[in-house]
Design a protein around this nucleic acid. Structure first.
Ligand SMILES: [Mg+2]
Ligand SMILES: [Mg+2]
Length: 202
RNA sequence: ACAU
DNA sequence: GTATGT
């Protein structure tokens, strides 16, 4: 038995019997909402609701309004590092509306984990300056460990090109040592909430 | 293995 | 497929 595909939001919303047809409605359609069901009846019923129940959507399509309140009040950080060029950048967005609040980089001769670490510290400093105690979400286990330790445990070798980066790492560690912050640093639960809203999409 |  | 990390 083939699956049935509901397209709530796409070029032509409807119930489709093949992925071939359904994909043409949703591919390259930003914000598309769609999901496969096992039976035609289940698909039809879901489609007739006109708008998908959050519980029907895969995590990748969850609207921010479906997130827990505590999460919606927070900020998300993420880093991107090209594994060929070793160029890294990082940024932070307000989760409620995905508005970018800062972005830094690119930094040469870096690593993903250094970027994830610097992003969190920068967010903590920025939030303190804003007088905000909102939580910071990162999808990086490594960086959240390093924050808890107050130490960036990178194995990245120093080069002539990453002196500024190591300077930033030192300043970040110093900031952690000298400042108390009450913002929680929490794991972004990709499995439950979908992609990190600060993700670079690369 | 887990998270990137 | 590559690399960063616990
Ligand atoms: Mg990340
Ligand atoms: Mg990302």
């Amino acid at each position: 038995m083939g699956k049935w595909y509901v397209v709530w939001h796409g070029r032509t919303p409807g119930v489709y019997s093949t992925w071939e047809e359904a994909r043409q409605q949703v591919e390259h359609f930003p914000g598309a909402r769609y999901k496969a069901f096992l039976t035609r009846e289940a698909a039809q019923q879901a489609f007739e609701a006109r708008s998908p129940n959050d519980s029907d959507l895969p995590a990748s399509q969850l609207p921010v309004t479906a997130l827990p309140d505590k999460v919606r009040r927070g900020y998300a950080v993420d880093a991107a590092c090209n594994s060929i060029t070793k160029e890294m950048e990082y940024r932070c967005v307000r989760i409620a509306d995905k508005q970018e609040v800062f972005r830094r980089g690119p930094f040469p001769d870096a690593t993903n984990n250094v970027g994830e670490f610097l992003a969190i510290v920068h967010a903590l400093a920025w939030l303190r300056q804003q007088g905000s105690t909102a939580p910071v979400y990162s999808d990086s286990m490594i960086a959240t460990f390093w924050i808890a330790e107050g130490k960036c445990r990178t194995r990245l070798p120093r080069t002539d090109r990453n002196a500024e980066l190591f300077e930033r790492i030192a300043r970040a560690e110093q900031w952690l040592a000298e400042n108390d912050y009450c913002n929680a640093v929490l794991k972004w639960r990709k499995d439950e909430w979908g992609e990190n809203p600060a993700d670079f999409g690369r």
